[in-house]
Design a protein around this nucleic acid. Structure first.
Lengths: 146, 146
DNA sequence: TTGAATTAGTTGCATAACTAACTATATGCC
DNA sequence: GGCATATAGTTAGTTATGCAACTAATTCAA
């Protein structure tokens, strides 16, 4: 049994999402404690729209690493909350452009603060150099695996 | 808007699971292509049982970073596939011990091979030192966030 | 210019996640 | 011993994920 071959990787905890889900859960909890009704998945979409409003569903899928079916339903739910609306593109009628509503704007600062604080706690005691390495490794792992 | 404070972290892609889900999806695809019917979530449970059979659901939850409700249903599904069985503990009748069946044994070598190969591809061009740093950072992020 | 191939989005189906409320068993303290 | 508390597991309800099959709009090529 090639059990020992696993040793090198031992990134199996990565597959299981150990650290990443711990941070995500913590952030979700902080949202809830602050009375925010959104999920982190919904927030991850809003985050990209705050940076650039009016993205297509396709583009949102690319930026959040989700397939188009997942985006469709995620937008459905965010739309139900009244935070975004779909507007059909004039140039290409297949495309839905997703726009933030006025109701979404007040959320930005509050969620940024919570996310920032959560990340600072998560990254306590970790140097900039280490973070750079992790980011860089992740980028390469992603490229190797997609 | 404290947008710039985000720069330091930029581990937001981590929250979104970019690299980790890419590896997981790839492994899932490799399982499917090899005719294996199990999901990676199910595999992550079997992986721990192959290392140590007869764990309680509680312990499986700890080792795979899942809550007890998730483990309950995951074991339900693995049990339906005939790969494990629950046996009530004699010492503590609240506890279910989870045991691999004979049907699970042939899967071990095949899935280890696929997982090994998938990880090697994912980690191509990444040094042992970098992997050590990532593992170490993850452990600390996890401790900071749990 | 029309018919084939591509692209954006939706829907059906199955699995999985978390929270909260619940049952049953164990423990611990008076 | 007996009651309060804690622990292991299950269930209900909601959200999210991926794949595959589908529709509608667009592009490309003969």
């Amino acid at each position: 049994m090639p059990n020992n071959q696993f040793k090198r990787g031992e990134l199996y905890s990565v597959i299981n999402g150990m650290a990443t889900t711990a941070v995500a859960r913590r952030l979700q909890k902080n949202f809830r404690n602050a009375g925010l009704e959104i999920t982190i998945e919904q927030w991850s979409v809003l985050y990209h729209l705050w940076k650039e409003d009016g993205l297509s569903q396709q583009e949102l899928g690319n930026r959040t690493f989700r397939d188009k079916a997942s985006i469709t339903r995620l937008i459905d739910n965010i739309e139900k909350l009244g935070l975004v609306e779909r507007i059909a593109s004039k140039e290409d009628r297949r495309v839905n452009l997703v726009y933030l509503t006025d109701a979404a704007k007040p959320l930005q600062e509050k969620t940024y603060e919570l996310a920032n604080q959560t990340m600072q706690e998560a990254l306590q005691g970790i140097s900039k150099e280490e973070i750079e390495i992790v980011k860089n490794v992740f980028q390469r792992v992603y490229e190797n695996s997609k």
